[in-house]
């Protein structure tokens, strides 16, 4: 029953001095008290912060979008994509849901064309012309939970998460390359077990990519 909603907001900004040719993506995962009674109102808790960092790492490692693509004019203007991920219902395995929601949202984002007026140095936004983002990779996560290092479960629910001894998230893209193997502590796993998880994850990736493609297609046809 886990539900995650992802909104993408694009803004124009000045690129940083260190990376003049790059735009940036700012992901933020919000786990509001609405989604589960375990979260309290106030500043984001540790789990939400760790999830935000994880999503940021996935975006960077998998190169879903190349930061260079978000540049409009070198050193002057670039896009900033704010990816706000909000959990509406928490029933375990938010990380997978977040990655899928993010990917689907990115695939559906349309940016207007922006040109820089050379005389006044002001950006001109052409809302008529829109183009989708250039999605390079399709990373999809698969989470596993481990009970006493003998039992492995895929896609844990909230109840299972509260009982597990260790958690593992494997993110793969369509070329079966790994983007992240995230295991924050817990009981140990051998290389063989990890291999099992990775093969499951690659299958999962194909499944989800097919799903997203089909959904996006259906949205396009209906409009």
């Amino acid at each position: 029953n886990t539900t995650v909603i992802c909104g993408i907001k694009a803004e124009l900004a000045n690129p940083t001095v260190e990376a003049p040719g790059k735009g940036y993506i700012v992901p933020n995962v919000d786990l509001p008290p609405l989604c589960s009674s375990r979260f309290r109102p106030g500043p984001p808790g540790e789990q939400a912060q760790a999830a935000s960092q994880f999503i940021a790492d996935v975006i960077e490692s998998s190169e879903v979008i190349q930061a260079e693509d978000l540049c409009i004019e070198r050193g002057k203007l670039c896009w900033v994509l704010y990816c706000d991920l909000m959990c509406l219902d928490y029933d375990g395995n938010v990380l997978d849901a977040c990655v899928i929601a993010l990917l689907a949202a990115l695939k559906n984002t349309q940016l207007p064309e922006v040109t820089v007026n050379t005389e006044t140095c002001t950006p001109v936004v052409n809302l008529e012309k829109r183009h989708g983002l250039n999605i390079h990779k399709h990373p999809v996560g698969a989470s596993f939970c481990v009970f006493d290092d003998s039992i492995l479960l895929v896609d844990p629910t909230a109840e299972e998460e509260s009982l597990l001894t260790s958690q593992l998230t494997v993110v793969t893209d369509e070329a079966a390359r790994l983007c992240a193997v995230h295991k924050p502590g817990g009981t140990s796993l051998s290389g063989e077990k990890l291999q099992e998880c990775i093969s499951r994850a690659t299958v999962r990736q194909k499944e989800i990519q097919k799903l997203i493609d089909k959904v996006i297609h259906s949205v396009k046809t209906s409009q």
Partner: peptide
Amino acid sequence: EKEITMEVEQHEKDSRGGYFEFSPSIR
């Protein structure tokens, strides 16, 4: 409209890929 917000709701189904049990020593 002017703002370039795009909201997609990706409905994540509770898709459990099954239940696996591994014997501790594969090697």
